[in-house]
Structures are given as C-alpha cells and as structure tokens.
Amino acid sequence: MQERARAIRAQYAEVEASTYGRSWTTEEIMLGFLGDVGDLAKLVQGKAGVRPREDLDEALAHELADCLWSVLTLADSYDVDLQGAFTSTMDELEGILSEDA
C-alpha cells in the first residue's frame, strides 16, 4: 500500500506543480486529510441514521481509503516506518489491556 500511495502522491505533485507552480506542502496535505476526516465523520453519522444517503456504504469505503492514503503519505513524508510503528503500538496497547484484565 505504501508504494501505491507514494506513486499516487508523485502524480498529484506533478498536477499541483503544473496547476499551482509547486506541489503541496506537508501542512497542506494534512489540511486535506482534516477535510477527509470531516467527510468521514458525516458518513459515520449516516451509518447511525443521522445523515442517510443512497450510496452510503460505497462513500464510506471511499472516504476510509482517502484517509488511509493521507496517513500513508504523511508517514512517508516524515520517514515513519508505519508498519513498525503500528506493530509496536498494538503490542503496547495489548500489554496495557492484558494488565487490566
């Protein structure tokens, strides 16, 4: 997934440079991610019956994928080993939960 996200980011950077004279900064990518999270929140409300729409399941899957792409792109921008960080964070949480049980 990381390689695919990186390739799509490179394509976006080309379009941005052509359109705006430069590619988006990491901060601008983060702001886009925040917008996607807002859209995701509305879709979660839809699943709860508050904001119904016909294509809800498809839209939810799309927005989750958009958010994942942003996370992968931000991790890549900051040289974060997301797989390693995920594994260690889950191990840490699992340990905390085991202590509480």
Rank of each mutant, 00 (worst) to 15 (best):
A65N: 11
E63L: 02
W69S: 12
D55V: 02
L68M: 14
E63A: 09
A65W: 05
T73Q: 10
C67H: 07
L74Q: 07
G49E: 01
V71H: 07
D55N: 10
L60R: 02
Y78V: 11
E63S: 11
A61L: 13
S70K: 09
T73S: 11
L68H: 11
D79Q: 11
A65Q: 10
D66K: 04
V44I: 15
L82N: 05
W69P: 00
R51N: 15
W69A: 14
L64M: 15
L72V: 05
C67Y: 02
H62I: 08
L74C: 06
E63D: 06
K47S: 11
D57M: 10
L64D: 01
L64I: 15
D76I: 02
D55R: 12
A59M: 13
T73M: 05
V50D: 06
E63T: 12
S70E: 02
G49L: 05
L82S: 06
A48W: 08
D66L: 02
D55I: 03
V71G: 03
R53L: 10
H62S: 13
A75W: 03
A59C: 09
Q83F: 12
W69F: 13
S70V: 09
D55Y: 02
V80P: 04
K47D: 05
E63G: 06
A48C: 10
Q45L: 15
H62K: 13
R53D: 00
D76S: 13
D66G: 05
D81H: 07
H62M: 10
L72Q: 08
C67T: 10
Y78R: 13
L74G: 06
D81S: 05
G49F: 07
R51L: 08
A75K: 07
D66T: 06
A48F: 13
D79Y: 05
D79E: 15
L82K: 08
C67M: 06
Q45R: 15
P52A: 03
L56T: 03
E54R: 15
Q45M: 14
H62F: 11
S70G: 15
L82Y: 05
T73W: 03
V71Y: 02
V44D: 02
L60Q: 01
L56W: 07
D81A: 04
V50L: 15
V50Y: 10
P52L: 08
A48E: 11
D79A: 12
L43M: 03
Q83C: 13
D76R: 07
L64Y: 07
D76Y: 07
L64W: 04
T73A: 15
L43V: 08
V80N: 06
Q45G: 09
S70N: 12
